[in-house]
């Protein structure tokens, strides 16, 4: 089985977000970048499927050279090789175009990624890649098994879940509990250094959106504390003061 896993480089989940240049640029100072947490689930499941069926796992990232540390970590977790498309990931359509171009060369059975990136939360790339390749896309997938070339999955729907199946190839947006996150072991870290990491230039340059500026949410006015022994007065305040009941 040939699996392509698409991984974004995003600020660590504990990052305090701020902006510079008159709120037109994200402030990267002091920020630790990680593989998208949802992408991490996708990678972990890909590695498990490879252990079960054999084959290869290729990681793809659209990003500049500074994402290579993150890519090496994906290799340490168990991917066999990697492709970095050397470009700033400008928007979802642009990123999807790059992934689709690489995917066309590789004839992958499965293209896995997170349901969304945790920076822009767009959740679009899987669908656009599916459309560009003319194959189904399914999101958010929480369980994935392969039986006789058919993917059996369940996905989240509003207030519940749905079981679905489809023949390969497929593009899937993944989320927990599709797999447990894997932590690279020492052997993985050592071998990752020499695994192939190919750098390619962008295949196309369609950008459909651009960010003009950023804003931070207004801070909440200070918290009104209610003594525990008068807890029931909260309900009246929610009704008469906050007017939410």
């Amino acid at each position: 089985m040939k699996i392509l896993v698409c991984v974004t480089s995003v600020p660590d989940t504990t990052t305090k977000i701020s902006f510079t240049d008159n709120n037109t640029k994200f402030n990267k100072a002091g920020v630790t970048y990680i593989a998208g947490p949802y992408d991490d689930y996708a990678l972990s499941r890909a590695v498990e499927l490879k252990e079960q069926f054999g084959g290869t796992v290729t990681v793809i990232n659209v990003g500049e050279a500074d994402t290579e540390t993150m890519i090496r970590k994906c290799l340490a977790i168990g991917a066999d090789d990697a492709v970095r498309v050397n470009a700033v990931p400008t928007d979802a359509y642009f990123v999807a175009e790059q992934i689709a171009a690489v995917a066309k060369e590789g004839n992958y059975d499965l293209i896995l990624m997170g349901r969304e990136s945790i920076d822009y939360n767009g959740g679009q790339v899987h669908g656009i890649v599916g459309e560009m390749l003319g194959i189904p896309s399914i999101t958010p997938v929480m369980k994935l098994d392969i039986e006789n070339g058919v993917a059996k999955m369940y996905k989240e729907i509003e207030g519940g879940k749905q079981t679905v199946e489809a023949p390969l190839p497929l593009v899937l947006g993944c989320q927990e509990p599709i797999a447990d996150w894997k932590i690279p072991n020492m052997r993985g870290i050592m071998t990752a250094r020499t695994k192939p990491l190919r750098v390619v230039e962008p295949a196309a340059n369609d950008v459909l959106t651009s960010v003009d500026s950023y804003e931070l949410p207004a801070a909440r006015s200070s918290c009104r504390m209610i003594p525990a022994e008068e807890a029931e007065t909260l309900i009246m305040l929610l009704k008469t003061e906050a007017k939410v009941l």
Binding site: I118, Y120, L208, S210, Y214, E215
Partner: peptide, 13 residues
């Protein structure tokens, strides 16, 4: 964006 930690003004082109 950033899961509710910020907002972006985006031009749809």
């Amino acid at each position: 964006i950033f899961t509710g930690k910020a907002f972006a003004v985006t031009e749809l082109k």
